[in-house]
Computed example of a mutant assay.
Amino acid sequence: MTELIQAIDQRGLIRDSYVIEGISAGECRSIFLDWALFEDHDMPQADRIKALLDHYGATAPDHPMTDVLTAALETPTAPKRRGGRKGRVG
Rank of each mutant, 00 (worst) to 15 (best):
A7T: 08
A7Q: 12
I8M: 04
Q10W: 00
R11P: 03
R11D: 15
R11F: 00
R11Q: 15
G12P: 10
I14L: 00
I14D: 08
R15L: 09
R15P: 01
S17F: 08
V19L: 08
I20H: 11
S24Y: 00
E27L: 00
C28P: 15
C28F: 03
S30G: 00
I31W: 00
F32W: 11
A36D: 03
L37I: 02
L37A: 07
E39A: 12
H41D: 14
H41A: 04
M43K: 02
P44A: 07
P44Q: 06
P44E: 14
D47C: 02
I49L: 08
K50W: 01
K50A: 07
A51E: 06
L52N: 08
L53M: 08
A58K: 14
T59A: 14
T59E: 15
D62R: 09
H63E: 11
P64Y: 12
V68A: 11
V68Y: 09
L69F: 05
L69W: 08
L69T: 14
T70L: 08
A71L: 11
E74W: 01
T75M: 01
P76D: 12
T77V: 13
A78M: 11
K80H: 15
K80D: 14
R81W: 07
G83F: 15
G83R: 13
G84R: 07
R85Y: 14
R85D: 07
K86C: 15
K86W: 14
G87F: 09
R88N: 07
R88Q: 08
V89H: 08
G90I: 04
